[in-house]
Amino acid sequence: MAVDEGLKIELGKQGVLVTSLQELYNWGRRNSIWPMQFGLACCAIEMIATTMARYDLARFGAEVFRPSPRQADMMIISGTVTKKMAPQVVRLYNQMAEPKYVIAMGACAISGGPFKQGYNVLKGIDRYIPVDVHIPGCPPRPEALLDAFITLQKKIDGQHLTGEGRPRHLDAEAQGEFPVPVQGEHDLEPASNPGVWTVPVVIR
């Protein structure tokens, strides 16, 4: 039973607040996203700058960087994910409590960036964990991270509490574990998590 948007505004003018459980839930969640204190490379410097007074991430309720994955809601993959670091990143993501979100910050985190042709850099963290927002840039400016943050807030705002399209943490059937890759002979094994992303077949 949804209340008409115009009616809600009209009631608001009269001092009557009308809301639904879903709206209240999403309002609370989107305004208290605690990121994990976790920096990988140079993008982390921009991430730190975003939290400082000039860009002030605290305006969005996200200044509380948590040093433990148990207390964090969001992981900012800020920088190059090497193949040595990728298992740790995936394990930390697994250890976060639901609901959890990921922002892939910078060219390296989304695709491998300038090191894409290298042998030891993961070509995008979205091979192993579901990424909610990708930000390009090398490194992205703090404004770009703020934009990603607002995008994530909008995404959370649009999530439904029940029904088919409800997010993973509300769905008992949805996959909760993301397998941690191991160091193989030449590459990480498996090369990707098929539930998240499949490696495209290159036709030569």
Partner: peptide, 20 residues
């Protein structure tokens, strides 16, 4: 009512710095 618990071995690990 809404949010089912989905524990697993990795999530319940004691150490939380990313290493086993």
């Amino acid at each position: 009512v809404y949010s089912p618990a989905k524990p697993n071995a990795i999530k319940n690990a004691i150490y939380e710095c990313g290493l086993e």
